[in-house]
């Protein structure tokens, strides 16, 4: 098909996509525009840019946000690694082995998705305190991992089940043990699925507010989800700095997304289904 005929075929679709994209990006553009305003400008004009621009909002937001971004990484990276490892192991076990109680165990794990998060805040905090884990890294990370491995196990099981059994059988005949089958064959094949899980995991841990607020005692250690609210208060809000904080907070994710978008999609292409 020639280029021009492809264009002729595609333009109505492109137009429709363009309209959808414009509406989708309104909040995004709005955040950026307002991050350059001071309060007086924001009160006068909600949607459109105003002059003079106030890039110093970023300078004011940066000390708190720079620290918060580092904090967020310090929570999100361990969460990510543990979620991938634990979901991978569990998903693999469910996909590859048949053992008594397999289905009921799987269903009882999947059923945990149904728990309203807010219900468990106080009981979960009590567990953390009982373990003497208040204000520790594991006190933030492990509860997060426990939330994320539920869907993670489901996703990894679905993915591992699409791998042809012949791969494994050949290696088994070569004398590989179960663990090396997992490491040498399953994991390399599952990299796309892992990256899907990783992105979803990052989105979750980057944006969760309630748990870090409750579990972290040292205000110097708060993550970006709470850091963005530093300039929003019950008595007054510095809107421009708050929007600048939102922009700064989303930059690391955008960069990560841009570089991993392809892999992320490949992970889904095995066909996530139920």
């Amino acid at each position: 098909m020639s280029k021009s005929s492809a264009w002729r075929r595609d333009w109505p679709l492109m137009l429709a996509l363009l309209i959808l994209a414009i509406i989708t990006y309104v909040p995004f553009v709005f955040t950026v525009i307002n991050s350059f305003k001071i309060n007086a400008q924001f009160f006068q004009e909600f949607w459109l840019p105003t002059t003079p621009l106030h890039p110093e909002n970023y300078a004011r937001a940066w000390p708190a946000m720079g620290r918060a971004i580092l904090n967020s990484f310090s929570y999100s990276i361990p969460t990510l690694i543990l979620t991938l490892v634990i979901s991978g192991l569990a998903g693999y076990a469910f996909a590859r082995y048949r053992f008594p109680g397999r289905n009921s165990l799987f269903i009882s794990i999947l059923a945990l998705i149904m728990i309203p998060g807010i219900l468990l805040v106080i009981p979960m905090f009590s567990v953390i305190i009982a373990l003497d884990w208040d204000d520790t890294l594991q006190g933030v990370v492990l509860p997060w991992v426990s939330v994320e491995i539920v869907f993670g196990t489901f996703l990894m099981r679905t993915f591992f089940e699409t791998l042809p059994r012949e791969y494994f059988e050949a290696a088994r005949l070569d004398g590989a043990n179960e663990f090396s089958l997992l490491i040498r064959i399953a994991v390399p094949l599952a990299i796309p699925a892992f990256s899907t899980l990783a992105i979803l995991n990052l989105l979750f841990s980057w944006n969760d507010i309630i748990w870090p607020l409750v579990a972290i005692f040292d205000s110097e250690r708060l993550p970006v989800s709470i850091g963005v609210l530093s300039f929003a208060g019950a008595w007054s809000t510095d809107y421009g700095v708050t929007f600048a904080s939102y922009v700064i907070a989303s930059l690391p994710l955008i960069i990560i997304f841009a570089f991993t978008s392809r892999r992320f999609m490949d992970g889904l292409s095995g066909g996530l289904s139920i």
């Binding site: 805040v121 106080i122 905090f125 009590s126 507010i209 607020l213 850091g227 609210l229 929003a232 019950a234």
Partner: peptide, 23 residues
């Protein structure tokens, strides 16, 4: 001195959890 909790709206959640655990 504990710096104020950012955001405001989740203050009650923050305080309830700490009260529940004597923290």
């Amino acid at each position: 001195l504990l710096p104020d909790i950012p955001g405001g709206t989740d203050y009650v959640t923050w305080l309830s959890a700490r009260m529940a655990a004597d923290e």
